[in-house]
Nucleic acid binder design. Sequence first.
RNA 1: AGGCGGGUAGCUCAGCGGGAAGAGCGCCACGCUUACACCGUGGAAGUCACAGGUUCGAAUCCUGUUCCGCCUACCA
Length: 728
Amino acid sequence: MRDVFVRLYNDGLIYQGDYIVNWCPRCHTAISDLEVEYDERNGFLWQILYPFAEGDRGVVVATTRPETMLGDTAVAVSPGDKRYEDKIGRIVILPLVNRRIPIIADDLVSMEFGSGAVKVTPASDPNDFAIAERHRLEVIKIMDGSAVINENGGVYKGQDRYECRENVLRDLEKGGYLVGKEPYVHSVGQCYRCKTDIEPMVSKQWFVKIKPVAKKAIAAVVKGKTKLLPATWESTYFEWMNNIRDWCISRQIWWGHRIPVWYCDTCGKEIVSTKDPTLCPDCRGNSLKQEEDVLDTWFSSALWPFSTLGWPDKTKALKTFYPTSLLITGFDILFFWVARMMMMGLYAMKDVPFRDVYLHALVRDEEGEKMSKSLGNIIDPIEMIEKFGADAFRFTLAAFTAQGRDVRMSEERIAGYKHFVNKIWNATRFTLMNLEDYPGGDVHVEKGDESLPDRWIKHRLNITIDEVVGSLNEYRFNDAASSIYQFVWHEFCDWYLELIKPTLYGKSDPAKRLAAQHTLFTVMKATLKLLHPFMPFVTEEIWQTLVNDGSSIMVSEFPAPDDGYQDPLADSRMGIIMGVISSIRNIRGEMNIAPSRKLKVVIATQEERSLEVVGTGAGYIVNLANLNNLVVDRSEEEPNNAATGIIGAIKVFVLLEGMDTAGEKARLEKEMARVNKDLMIISKKLANRDFMAKASREVIEKEEEKFRGIKEKHDVLETALKRLQNMA
RNA sequence: AGGCGGGUAGCUCAGCGGGAAGAGCGCCACGCUUACACCGUGGAAGUCACAGGUUCGAAUCCUGUUCCGCCUACCA
């Protein structure tokens, strides 16, 4: 901390001066611009008459803070304002105080606001202070550190600022100077720590000349040496950094790092040093007094990325870890801390402190309000954890964290993910039950013993791993979370576990059973690892019981895509079988057939490949669609009393004795309507000359393919409907 | 005042380097089938804020309008 201060000082980037700062009358300290919070207030805009010294009427000024008039040293008007052109340079008498003050012209004054004339109180307003500097006006402080009027306030001495306001108003009114009052909403700065109204006040403070340092921090982001993510934050960062003002780093509080500056009692020399000096280098005097002010806590915080690694020593840690790879933080800390770490890192280390800065979403309450203690709308994470579990809560946060958006926390969503944790737990129970006799260790499984579902689920797992890894690399946590969710629930649990149940339960084929167990174990382990960053507790617990070799999932290797798992053929075969099963289930559901009733089904197709896939997968279809009879053939003949389903080139007939023909007709017509709509859209497209001429060949082929598929479906539906007509 | 983000199914939100609208929850129907009723199967549900434009084609790109949220600055 001292090292940086001394270097900045020697480089001429630290200076001390009388400036107007944000002063907290309760904390008795200056605070930085960033530490001021603004609050809308219903107040008044008062109009006060300042008479000319010559005795004629005078000018009217408007103010929200009449009490500050005690410190007025001028009245300012806009240079281009015709109304006041001839009055510039004249003298007015400040009411109640009887001070003679000039009328001056300054660009800062707007002609439109109020009366067009503004009172100038350099010691109590930042703008007025700037005007005073330009016009060399006197600066009269009228308050002490507690915002109580001092001796410059004459009879009002000893009054609090708000008490004084009332008295000043009363006296102005009495003297006939108060000429107007209207309700006015304006914002008042408050101390972010204690909420006391800030009093802009002139005092001696230490500042960092920030522009030169900020310039480098801007360039680092422009050049991409540090990336802000989501990238939209970069424009916000630039906006702020380009308009940055000098940083007030001194504080008048009793805690914190004292500024490493000493004053010689003998000759008044200012000594700036990293080590406590004992002698004045100039006069050899030994009576030295250290500066009373301490540093803004953000000053040392800004050094965090390298000071924690041992700087200024050239430590191994510093060499190894600086620049760090990633900082994750909230956007509200971007200026407070991130920008300052950037500036100080570049200054002291000549390199950025971090490669990536990920600005995560802010969690808001269910109404989208920012949580705050005073609003009382804090969602306590501990309560959520007690109610839904740490893993469900954590997973929810990840699932909600889409880039560039804030999170509106909703308990319903957390509850949904609690169910997901439960689902995982139950899948684990299933796995444990069915692995009881699994030998473990290096089980050898012949490729040929692996079933279609085994190959399929590994293929899907591989895709999931690829998606999750890709999403995490881009900080797309919500995409990673939904990929895992989708895989675990809707592929692994919904399909794979159901598909292998007969193999696991029946002990007729030990080799296939072992292969299924092996796949189950393998996929389960990889899934747990994928889930672990999102659900650390449950996954570790399961790992300990399932793997049970004394290892921790925390230190296991994160899954990486494995080409050996790729099996697009299994994927497409499984897709056909799943399509057939879904189609039968759909008919069952729509025709209101009880889930327990076993069905007879005929599957017909002229396509050899489909015939083969459905034929070899018949067992899965019988099982998952709950059939007691399945015929697969290439016959063109279509059975009567059958509900029809279509999956590409495959026709599915669910045989129903005494079928509800009206119900089936309605079902087919609904499907037909959907098909017709699609058909119309696509045929219109294909009939469009411009489309055929201008669209890419890929797109056209895709559309034509789509058209063929839908047309096929349309024809099947048509014949099925005709058959129903004939039956009736 | 300036900047940024958003308005997509009843709710909370994905999709937005243009080619048939997605998820979770909720809702409806049917089911206690030896992992799970915190479940299973099926289903209904959207003029993608509005108006123009670019394009063969727009939720997706451009312009404008409107409403909401946030940030920064100022406010005599």
